[in-house]
């Protein structure tokens, strides 16, 4: 139970990040075709992701992942569970 609460504190979804924040992918909650596309675009477990910016009208968002820039809608980003990291952490592991 404590572990769960702990999880709840560190785990967020990708749509909740602010520009500039770093995180690491924990998993994708939703199944189906979109999950596989997101995985194929490199959002696999453990992948380091940086939130870059939000589009002028508030959606979609721009991410840095595996050395390139990927844009997804917040609805899709919300299915990607992440844990927050500072950038240093993502490098040391």
């Amino acid at each position: 139970m404590i572990a769960f609460l702990d999880d709840a504190q560190t785990h967020r979804n990708l749509a909740e990040l602010s520009p500039g924040e770093h995180c690491r992918v924990v998993g994708i909650s939703e199944g189906g075709g979109i999950r596989h596309r997101l995985l194929e675009m490199g959002l696999t477990r453990g992948a380091a992701v940086q939130m870059i910016r939000v589009a002028p009208l508030g959606d979609p968002i721009e991410l840095q992942v595996r050395g390139y820039r990927l844009s997804v809608r917040k609805a899709e980003a919300a299915t990607v569970m992440v844990e927050m990291t500072t950038h240093r952490h993502s490098i040391s592991s």
Partner: peptide, 12 residues
Amino acid sequence: GPRPAFILELPP
């Protein structure tokens, strides 16, 4: 049908 995803590369 389900809303198609918006998954787009923003190339340099």
